[in-house]
Design a protein around this nucleic acid. Structure first.
Lengths: 246, 246
DNA sequence: CACGTCAGTTTGTGCGCACATGCTGACGTC
DNA sequence: GACGTCAGCATGTGCGCACAAACTGACGTG
C-alpha cells in the first residue's frame, strides 16, 4: 500500500511544479500503473520525498481530483477512482464531430459559402441584426455514405475563410489557427423529421428523423466565434455527454 | 473603478471563509451589482479590507473563475466575464427533467414496477448479468399532455422504492434521500421513430420522432446508482448542454 | 517623433507554519 | 463481550512571507 510513483521534477523549465507533478501522476493512473481503489501516497510523505512543499503537492492532487481521477477522504487518504468514473477533462468534443474512431473515410463537401444576414444567427451571437455573416453549409460523409448537414454562421472577422480550407480542414481547427479559440458554448439538442433538402442530401425516407444540434461559441473575452445548426442521420449518430454534479 | 463589494464574513460558522466569500461575490455578480467587463477589486486590497489572507481571497476568486464568472489576467486584474459566458455550476440537470420553468402541471404516472433481470442495464452498470434489478416505467405529462416515457433500472439496494414514492417525488430526489447521490454519469442522446407502445403513450403519429437519452449514473465510490432509458416527444423537448474547453 | 526602458501594478508560483476535522483501530472499563 | 475513549493519521482550512512574470503607462533618449 501507499505505492510510490516515480516522478521527476525539473525546476529549470517554466512549467509550474504542480503541473509537472499532476501530469506525471495522471500518466501513472491512466497507464494503469495504479489500479482503481489503490491507496495513494499521502501528501506529506510525497512532498517530503520529492522535495516539494505540501501546498504544491496538494495543488497537483487537486487537479486530478477535479478531473475525477482521484478520490480523497479526510482521515482516510487518497485513492484512485473507479475506472468507470475516469473521464477526460473535456466534456463533449467542441472539436469537429467526425473524429470518432472507426470512421473510415471522412469527407467534407462544401454545398454553400456566401455572405448573408440572418436574424436567428445574429441574435444567438449577440451582434447587430444587419451584421454580414459568412454562411457555410457542408455535407459530411463517410465514403459514399452521407452523415450530416452542417450549417454555420461566422462573424465578419472570419469571412476570408475559403472553400479550399474548409474541404481539407475542420472548421474548429481553422478557428483555432486564427488564435480566437472557443471557450464556452451553449448547445441545444433535439430531433425532428428532415426537410426536403436534408432528406435528399442524407438519403433519408420520410419516417427517419434527424438529430439536430444548434450551438453558439464564444472566446474567452466573450466575443462570438460561431453559430452552428447541424443535423445528423439519427441512425448513424448519437451524442455522448458526461456530467458530474458535486 | 475597482468597485468594493459589501461582504460580511462570519468566523463562527463551520462554513469555510473562502466559500462564504465566493458565495457573496457570486451573488453580487449574478444580481447585476457588477456589470460585465467591470474591474474587480484586486486580491491584496480585498484581503486587507476584509481582514482575510491573500490565499483565502484567491481561493474564493478561483472558485468563480472556474465557474466562468470572472476572468483574470496577470498584470491587468480581474474582471467580470461577459454575460453570455455566465453559466450555472451544474452542466445539464441530472435532477429530474421536468423542473423547467413554465411547466404548468407536472404529473407522473407509474406504468410498471417490477423486479427483472436485464443484460443491457446490467452491462451498463457493470454488475453481474443475473442481478435482480428494479425496473420502473413512468409516463411524464404536463396536465393531459404526455411528454416522455422514462424507463429506469435500479440495483438491489433500492428495490424497496414504492409506487407511491415515485408518484409524489422525483427519482433523483428519492436516491439522494438515501445518501448515495450520483456524482458522475454518461449520457447518450439520439433520435428514432417511436415504438408502438411509445406512440400510444405519447400520442404520436408515425412521422414524429422521439428524442432518446440513455444514461448511467455512479456514486462517488464508483457504485452504480441507476441506468435510465428515456424517450421524449421531440416536439416539446430539447436538451440544453453547456461546454467549456480551456 | 519614434522607440526602448523602467517603474508600478496585479496576478502567478512556491514555501513555511499552525490548528481543525473526520476517520480508524486499539485499548480499557464496565 | 459491548461500549466509550483516546491516540494516531490524513486531509481541510487558514495564515504569513517572498519572488517571478505579464501588462500598462510614463519617461527619457536618440
Amino acid at each position: 500500500m501507499a505505492k510510490q510513483i516515480d516522478v521527476r521534477i525539473d525546476r529549470d523549465t517554466p512549467v509550474p511544479l504542480y503541473h509537472q507533478l499532476a501530469q506525471q501522476l495522471e500518466a501513472a493512473i491512466t497507464s494503469g500503473e495504479l489500479s482503481p481503489g489503490e491507496a495513494f501516497e499521502n501528501e506529506i510523505a510525497m512532498a517530503d520525498r520529492l522535495g516539494l512543499s505540501r501546498p504544491t503537492v496538494r495543488r497537483a492532487i487537486q487537479e486530478l481530483v477535479s478531473q475525477g481521477l482521484l478520490l480523497r477522504r479526510r482521515g482516510l487518504g487518497t485513492t484512485v477512482a473507479s475506472r468507470q468514473i475516469h473521464r477526460r477533462a473535456e466534456l463533449t468534443s467542441l472539436y469537429d464531430d467526425l473524429k470518432r474512431e472507426g470512421a473510415g473515410d471522412p469527407r467534407t463537401q462544401v454545398l454553400s459559402h456566401e455572405v448573408v444576414t440572418d436574424t436567428t444567427a445574429a441574435t444567438a451571437m449577440g451582434v447587430p441584426l444587419d451584421t454580414p455573416l459568412l454562411r457555410i453549409v457542408r455535407l459530411r460523409s463517410d465514403g459514399d455514405h452521407p452523415l450530416a448537414v452542417l450549417r454555420n454562421w461566422l462573424p465578419p472577422a472570419y469571412s476570408d475563410i475559403t472553400v479550399e480550407q474548409l474541404t481539407t480542414s475542420g472548421l474548429y481547427a481553422l478557428l483555432r489557427d486564427r488564435g480566437a479559440r472557443p471557450v464556452v458554448a451553449h448547445q441545444r439538442i433535439g430531433a425532428r423529421p428532415p426537410s426536403a433538402d436534408e432528406r435528399r442530401h442524407l438519403c433519408l425516407r420520410a419516417s427517419q428523423p434527424v438529430l439536430t444540434m444548434t450551438r453558439t461559441a464564444f472566446d474567452a473575452m466573450g466575443n462570438p466565434v460561431e453559430y452552428g445548426d447541424h443535423c445528423y442521420r439519427a441512425e448513424d449518430y448519437s451524442i455522448e455527454v458526461m456530467l458530474d454534479e458535486r
